Amino acid sequence: MNTLPEIGVGIKNSPFYGAFYENAITESRRFPEFYRAAAEKHGCIFFNAAEYIYPSEVDSLHLTPEGHSVLAEKLCEVIKNV
């Protein structure tokens, strides 16, 4: 199980601004807490992607191509150790 990257502070200047509540940036930082609890409850592996990837500066939400590469590499490391 993995989490998502945090919503970037630049979301206020993003085309996606308005699609989220004002507290979305702060709340997105809590994703790992909830995903970790769900993973433990269901006996799943927890992978905190937010430790390795960040939203793009373009929209403060989606990953860059480089971010996708980093995510793939880190997930591959986890999978190899399962």
Rank of each mutant, 00 (worst) to 15 (best):
R29E: 13
R29M: 09
R30L: 15
F31Q: 04
F31K: 08
F31A: 15
P32C: 10
P32Y: 02
P32S: 10
E33Q: 12
E33C: 02
E33F: 11
E33G: 08
Y35F: 13
Y35R: 05
R36Y: 04
A37V: 09
A37C: 07
A37I: 00
A38P: 01
A38T: 00
A38K: 03
A39H: 01
A39I: 04
K41I: 07
K41E: 13
K41M: 13
G43R: 07
G43K: 05
G43A: 02
G43Y: 04
C44L: 15
C44P: 04
I45E: 14
I45F: 08
F46A: 06
F46D: 08
F46R: 05
F46Y: 13
F47D: 07
F47G: 01
N48Q: 12
N48G: 03
A49W: 02
A50K: 05
A50L: 10
E51R: 07
E51Q: 14
E51I: 05
E51N: 14
E51A: 09
Y52T: 05
Y52I: 02
Y52M: 04
Y52W: 14
Y52E: 01
Y52P: 02
I53D: 11
I53R: 09
I53N: 06
I53M: 09
I53E: 06
Y54A: 14
Y54M: 13
Y54V: 09
P55Q: 00
P55T: 06
P55C: 08
S56K: 03
V58I: 12
V58D: 06
D59L: 01
D59G: 06
D59M: 12
D59A: 01
D59H: 04
D59F: 07
S60E: 08
S60K: 10
L61I: 00
L61M: 04
L61K: 02
L61H: 06
H62R: 08
H62K: 08
H62I: 11
L63Q: 00
L63W: 05
T64H: 08
T64Q: 03
T64M: 01
T64R: 03
P65N: 11
G67T: 00
G67F: 07
H68W: 10
H68D: 12
S69Y: 13
S69R: 15
S69L: 15
V70D: 05
V70I: 15
V70P: 02
L71P: 11
L71I: 03
L71E: 09
E73I: 03
K74G: 02
K74Q: 14
L75H: 07
C76W: 13
C76M: 08
C76P: 01
E77T: 00
E77D: 15
V78C: 15
V78I: 15
